[in-house]
Each structure stands twice: as structure tokens, then as C-alpha cells.
């Protein structure tokens, strides 16, 4: 059975004539333990799908299910125990005046889980940080260390699913490699299911088994990462994304439709 089911998901903002439909019949199914990628450019709706699953939007129509249970409009505590999200910008997603300890205690307090101190030590070790880091403030951490804390905060509730929104795009290449390795290890060890959103095809091909390509709120292509190796995808949009991630080519630029003013 699929761990994450998204069936005919539609979402619009605004009403009447001003309505702007941002998702059109999006369907995906991610099985347990799988890493699934969503790629696309700004405005393609990839992050919006993630936000619907995380409960940040509740006026969608269609069906969303986690672990076989349909999701309601309201964000319930039980869903948060199963699904957690890691955001793009580790600088913006940690409270600047809260220590790592405070940031990690909060989800535990909300869910009434005891034994906080031991859990914090355990989770910091799991994400590869020394336990002494619990007394630090975000400004005392590097970008990579902050993202590790953000991952720890998502994992401390022991969720089954991680929603990853561009988790490495704010990081340097060398640090990105460390975080991608950490995510791969965690998935293997904990049997987590990932839904990863990114614009970087290299990242998605590295971490994910399957990739859906989104454009203008629709899924236009679905590919297996293994099939991307050394090949030229059939769908023109996917082909452009893949080729552009390989190298810059003056001729390719001409084939891209000029941007509307």
C-alpha cells in the first residue's frame, strides 16, 4: 500500500474571475520507504503539493492519504506525528533567540512526550552533531549544522514521512554532499519515506528513486532516476531540465521558449 497518496489534487487561490488555479489534478503515490522527487521551476506548484500534505493549506479538493488514512482539512496532532517537514532556508527556519535545546523541546512539549533530555541527546547524535550543541544559538552554527538541527527537529517526533523542501539549495556543494549523505543514511536506518522538492536535477537523481516533473501545476512526466543515466528523456521539458543540469549550451537556450513579458 502506498504511504503517501495524492489523488486528483486541485487547488486555487482567489475567487470568481480572479481565481488562479495552481494545481491541476495532481496524482502521486509513494510507497513506504521510497524517496520520491518533485522537480520543476518556480511557480510549477511543487512546493504547494508539499504544503497541502503538511496541512499548511486546507482548501484543496481531491484526496490526500497518509498510510491509508484520508487526511481531513484540519491539521491534527496525529498527522504531525507521522509527517514532518524540513524547509529550504536553515537561516530562516530556526528561531534566532531559541537555543537548539528549546527548538527541539518544543515539538515534544506540544505532543506531551516526556524524557526530553535523553531524546535530544539521541537525536543530535543521530544527525551527526555533538550533544554539547544543545546549548547553542543558531548564529553559533554553520549553515550545514543548522540544517542538521532542522532535520533533528523534524525527526524528534519519530515521523514516518519527511517532506523536504529544497533542503540543500542554500548550502555549498561540499556541505550539500554531507547533508545528502545524512538523508540517505537516515532513510535506510529508520525506514523513512521521503517526498523531496527541488529544482536541482542532480540532487533529485541522487536521492530519489522516482521523479515527477511539474510544470504549470501539472505533472508532465514521471521517470525513474536510474533511467536518466546517460540518456535523453523523451518529454521536451524534462529533456531541457536534464540537459541544463549537465552543461550550458548556447543552442539549447534558443530552443527554450522566450519568457512572456
Amino acid at each position: 500500500m502506498a504511504m503517501i497518496e495524492v489523488d486528483k489534487l486541485n487547488l486555487s487561490f482567489g475567487e470568481g474571475d480572479d481565481a488562479n488555479q495552481v494545481l491541476h489534478d495532481v496524482c502521486i503515490a509513494v510507497s513506504e520507504g521510497e524517496a520520491f522527487g518533485l522537480v520543476g521551476e518556480s511557480g510549477s506548484g511543487k512546493t504547494t503539493v508539499l504544503r497541502c500534505l503538511a496541512g499548511q493549506y486546507n482548501h484543496w479538493s481531491g484526496r490526500l492519504a497518509i498510510d491509508g488514512e484520508n487526511l481531513g482539512r484540519k491539521l491534527e496532532k496525529a498527522r504531525c506525528r507521522k509527517v514532518q517537514m524540513v524547509f529550504q532556508d536553515p537561516y530562516g527556519s530556526l528561531h534566532p533567540r531559541h537555543t537548539v535545546e528549546t527548538a527541539l523541546t518544543e515539538p515534544l512539549a506540544i505532543h506531551g512526550i516526556g524524557d526530553a533530555s535523553r531524546r535530544i541527546d539521541a537525536i543530535l547524535t543521530k544527525v551527526g552533531l555533538p550533544t554539547s550543541f544543545r546549548y547553542r544559538y543558531p548564529h553559533q552554527l554553520s549553515g550545514g549544522q543548522r540544517q542538521r538541527v532542522a532535520i533533528a527537529r523534524a525527526l524528534i517526533l519519530e515521523p514516518r514521512i519527511l517532506l523536504l523542501d529544497e533542503p540543500t539549495s542554500a548550502l555549498d556543494v561540499s556541505v550539500q554532499a554531507e547533508i545528502l549523505n545524512l538523508l540517505a543514511d537516515l532513510r535506510q536506518r529508520e525506514g523513512l519515506t521521503y517526498l523531496l522538492v527541488t529544482h536541482d536535477l542532480g540532487v533529485v537523481a541522487h536521492l530519489c528513486d522516482r521523479v515527477a516533473v511539474m510544470q504549470h501545476g501539472r505533472i508532465v512526466d514521471l521517470i525513474e532516476s536510474a533511467n536518466l543515466v546517460g540518456c535523453v528523456p523523451e518529454h521536451p521539458y524534462t529533456r531541457m531540465l536534464v540537459e541544463a543540469s549537465r552543461h550550458y549550451d548556447r543552442h539549447m537556450a534558443d530552443s527554450v521558449a522566450p519568457e512572456a513579458a
Binding site: 540517505a184 542532480g202 537523481a205 541522487h206 543515466v229
Partner: peptide
């Protein structure tokens, strides 16, 4: 350390 579409490696 660059993840690549063409060279899939278990670890970077």
C-alpha cells in the same frame, strides 16, 4: 561532491 544525473552513487 556534485550530485549528478549521470553517475548515481550510494554516497557522495
Amino acid at each position: 561532491a556534485l550530485p549528478s544525473v549521470d553517475a548515481r552513487r550510494p554516497r557522495l
